[in-house]
Amino acid sequence: MAVNCTTLEQVRSNIDRLDQQIVTLLAERGQYVSQAARFKKDTDGVKAPQRVEQVISKVRDLSHTVGANPDVTEQVYRAMIAAFIQQELAEHAALAGVDRSSA
């Protein structure tokens, strides 16, 4: 729960503290994304649009529960998922022995 700050410096300090935690969690999430590539047969499995919508629905519901703006949460998650899909496609291609950077 956010504390009531009395200065802009306090606000920024708390945002910096949260950014440290968020980036740490993104790194952990990215490690799981890399592992997921091993279990998917093809690029359609990597893109998994039904799974994306399932995650979006879940985080929108969670936003309501914790008092976050569900529209902001959805936008952040869609951007994050798109970036992780690109990472996973690269992992999947590497596992398949295909160099996508030269294609």
Score class of each variant (00 low, 15 high):
Met1Asn: 07
Met1Thr: 01
Ala2Met: 07
Val3Met: 00
Thr6Ser: 03
Thr6Glu: 05
Thr7Tyr: 05
Thr7Lys: 03
Leu8His: 07
Leu8Thr: 01
Glu9Tyr: 02
Gln10Val: 00
Arg12Cys: 06
Arg12Thr: 03
Arg12Trp: 09
Ser13Phe: 03
Ile15Leu: 09
Ile15Glu: 08
Ile15Gly: 06
Asp16Arg: 01
Arg17Gln: 05
Arg17Lys: 13
Arg17Tyr: 11
Leu18Tyr: 04
Leu18Ile: 06
Asp19Lys: 12
Gln20Leu: 15
Gln20Tyr: 10
Gln20Asn: 08
Gln21His: 13
Val23Ser: 08
Leu25Arg: 11
Leu25Pro: 11
Leu26Tyr: 15
Ala27Pro: 00
Ala27Val: 12
Glu28Leu: 14
Arg29Ser: 09
Arg29Asp: 09
Gly30Gln: 04
Gly30Pro: 00
Gly30His: 04
Gln31Cys: 03
Gln31Asp: 05
Tyr32Asp: 14
Val33Ala: 08
Val33Thr: 07
Val33Leu: 11
Ser34Glu: 12
Ser34His: 10
Ser34Asp: 12
Gln35Met: 15
Ala37Leu: 07
Ala37Asn: 05
Arg38Pro: 08
Phe39Ala: 12
Phe39Arg: 12
Phe39His: 13
Lys40Glu: 05
Lys41His: 15
Asp42Glu: 05
Thr43His: 09
Thr43Tyr: 14
Thr43Val: 12
Asp44Val: 00
Lys47Gln: 09
Lys47Phe: 12
Pro49Lys: 07
Pro49Ser: 03
Gln50Ile: 10
Arg51Glu: 14
Arg51Leu: 12
Glu53Ile: 04
Gln54Phe: 07
Ile56Gln: 02
Ser57Arg: 10
Val59Tyr: 08
Asp61Trp: 13
Asp61Pro: 10
Asp61Arg: 09
Asp61Val: 09
Leu62Gly: 15
Ser63Gln: 01
Ser63Tyr: 06
His64Val: 13
Thr65Tyr: 15
Thr65Gly: 10
Val66Phe: 01
Gly67His: 05
Ala68Asn: 11
Ala68Met: 13
Ala68Cys: 09
Asn69Ile: 00
Asn69Glu: 00
Asn69Leu: 09
Pro70Gln: 04
Pro70Asn: 03
Pro70Met: 02
Asp71Val: 03
Thr73Ile: 06
Thr73Lys: 05
Thr73Gln: 12
Thr73Glu: 08
Glu74Leu: 00
Tyr77Met: 10
Arg78Asn: 05
Arg78Phe: 04
Ala79Pro: 04
Met80Ala: 14
Met80Thr: 09
Met80Ile: 12
Ile81Met: 09
Ile81Trp: 15
Ala82Ser: 11
Ala82Ile: 02
Ala83Val: 01
Ala83Gly: 14
Phe84Gln: 02
Ile85Cys: 03
Gln86Tyr: 11
Gln87Ser: 06
Gln87Tyr: 10
Glu88Lys: 10
Leu89Thr: 00
Ala90Trp: 14
Glu91Thr: 05
Glu91Arg: 04
His92Val: 04
His92Trp: 13
Ala93His: 01
Leu95Val: 03
Ala96Gln: 10
Gly97Trp: 06
Gly97Ile: 02
Val98Gly: 02
Ser101Asp: 10
Ser102Met: 15
Ala103Lys: 11
